[in-house]
Simulated scan of single mutants.
Amino acid sequence: MKAVIFDLDGTLIDSAPDLHAAVNCMLDDLRRPPLTLERVAGFVGNGVPTLVERCLEATGGLAEDFDRALARFREHYARSPARLTRPYPGVELALERLTLAGLALGVCTNKPQEFAVTILEELRMMPFIRTVVGGDATPKLKPDPAPLLLCLDRLGADGTSALYVGDSEIDAETAFRAKVPFALFSGGYLRESIDAFEPLYVFDHFGDLSDHVLGGGR
């Protein structure tokens, strides 16, 4: 194996608390009721515009000026995208182990590039990541395979020499369409039953993932 590529939200990091805070600031600007953390976490995964759209639909319907609502969310989120966000247990050590073993690591996420890089830098994970493909790096978001294929290309890998790690049905479909083996982190934002798809490997702690990869598992 040459490379391991990770989704970001719900996989490497629990970002829901900061997304939740920005969403409720946006809703307050629009004089709408707040949403719970659990509700917002359930909307994560399809990119920022879809997150905002789902939150608006849950609080009275789409705003007439959707672009303004989206801009307000981005402004609030940009102020502190990593204040409450934390890596999942074992992430830092797993990234270090995989890097020391000579594997190239990448991140492929629907989160906008600027936010993704900022969070990885603030949480001190960027030194382990060779490339980041954000949601605005290609014309289409995951589950379209284009972002993952771009990440593979940047790492000099392909479906026979890489593993994609994610937490959702979106990530599973992306890996399938890009013809890349998929490992599921079960502690993220999965909305469907694991039985709905067939990951190569399922784990609930990142120490198990690094053991699996470095032990020769695929």
Rank of each mutant, 00 (worst) to 15 (best):
T109C: 09
P139M: 09
A183S: 03
S168R: 07
M126G: 01
P143A: 02
T138K: 08
I129N: 09
T131N: 01
P143T: 08
L148G: 11
T174S: 07
F176P: 03
R191N: 13
T174D: 08
L200C: 08
A157S: 13
R191P: 04
L120G: 00
L152A: 08
Y189L: 01
T160M: 01
A116E: 00
T160G: 09
F176N: 14
L184E: 07
R191Y: 01
T131P: 02
T118R: 14
R177N: 13
T174P: 14
G187C: 14
P112I: 04
A157D: 06
A196I: 01
R191C: 11
D144M: 08
D167V: 14
E114R: 13
A178N: 12
G135Q: 02
G134N: 11
D158L: 03
V202Q: 15
I119H: 03
R154W: 06
A157K: 12
L148E: 10
I129W: 01
R130S: 12
I129Q: 02
F115T: 07
L155G: 09
A137Q: 10
P112C: 05
E169H: 13
C151D: 13
Y189R: 02
T131Y: 04
K140C: 07
I170M: 12
E173D: 10
K111C: 11
A116F: 01
D158K: 07
G134C: 10
G187Q: 10
F176G: 11
A183E: 00
M126W: 04
S193A: 15
L190I: 08
L150G: 14
Y201G: 05
A162N: 03
Y201V: 12
A157G: 10
A146G: 14
E198V: 10
G188F: 07
G166D: 15
S186K: 14
E114P: 01
D171A: 05
I129Y: 02
E198Y: 05
P143I: 02
S168P: 07
P143D: 02
R177D: 08
E121F: 00
T118Q: 04
